[in-house]
Amino acid sequence: MNTKTLPTDELKKYGIINEDLSFSKKLNADDVQKFLKGYTIVADHNKNRATFQLTENNSKLKVIFLERDKSIDEILKNSKANIEYSNIQDLSKSEKEMVYEKKAFIFDKETNKVVEFDLIKNTRELTAIIADKRDIAETNRYKTELQKLKSFLQYKIDQFPEMAKEITNDLNIVAKEIGTVDGISKKQNDTQKLDKTDIQLNVNDPDMYQNSRRYWEEEEELHRPKGRGR
């Protein structure tokens, strides 16, 4: 790994390193090592997101500015109650070059932190988490977000066929996951129907009905005002 060719002026400009060339205290040792190996640093503020990545043997800094549809504070707050979804776009690019990402934010009670998932890169892990929740409404929300993403990818292919090969892989991942979610939804619906059937059977159980009737008759006798003796 080459650190001698670091673009120090740019790194200082964005606060990644200090004037004495030490790395910002906002980055821990692991973050720094990953950054020097080509991993991306992500910085969020309000609706804005910036990504920083070293390229060309650590001699250049690739910077991308993105915009969310929601502020990071809103996302963090809402994710504590339900899974929160957000779109990220690079509005500075042409429609053809436009970066579009769909994220899911889930609050992890064990670590007390909000974890970000990409609906393409982390789709299997995300689907497993949602399946474990066994919540039909949450599953349907997830499916809706996948369908929106699928529609966008299909639109990009239709508008820019020369990019079809590049986008089709992502489209296939999303389409396959929609199929998986359909299977999860069917199981959840079947379970819910079974639960309702069990309740109905219990209500119609003759022995239970007789026991219930006898109980209320006894209660009625117990609380009935007694007549005056003669």
Rank of each mutant, 00 (worst) to 15 (best):
K133M: 14
L146M: 13
E166K: 07
T111V: 06
R134S: 10
E138P: 02
K156V: 07
V115D: 02
F152W: 12
N172C: 00
E145L: 10
R134C: 03
T197P: 00
F152E: 15
E101D: 05
F117T: 01
D190L: 11
N112F: 05
K121T: 08
V115G: 02
D118H: 08
L149P: 03
I106E: 09
T139E: 13
Y155W: 14
E166F: 09
E97D: 15
A131T: 09
S151L: 09
Y100I: 07
A137N: 13
F107N: 05
I106T: 05
E145D: 08
N189S: 10
T168V: 07
N169D: 11
P206D: 09
S94R: 01
T144M: 11
E177M: 02
D158N: 15
K187L: 11
E145T: 10
Q159E: 15
I167E: 06
V181E: 01
I199V: 08
R141E: 10
I130S: 04
T168N: 15
E138Y: 04
E138W: 01
N140E: 15
M98S: 02
T168M: 13
E138Q: 09
K103L: 14
Y100L: 08
K196R: 09
I178Y: 03
A131I: 00
E95W: 02
L146N: 08
S185A: 13
K148Q: 13
Y209P: 00
G183K: 08
E162D: 14
N204R: 11
V174A: 10
E116G: 00
F107M: 03
K165S: 14
E97L: 04
K93V: 01
K193H: 06
D170L: 00
T191R: 12
N122L: 01
L194I: 02
A104F: 10
V174T: 07
K102M: 14
S185D: 12
K176M: 06
I157M: 15
L149Q: 11
Y155F: 15
L149Y: 09
E110N: 15
D182Q: 04
D198P: 00
A128Y: 07
N189V: 09
R141L: 13
F117G: 02
E177G: 00
K143Y: 03
D132S: 13
R124T: 11
E125F: 00
Q154K: 14
F117M: 04
K196L: 14
Y209F: 12
K93I: 01
K148I: 07
D207R: 07
D108P: 04
R134L: 08
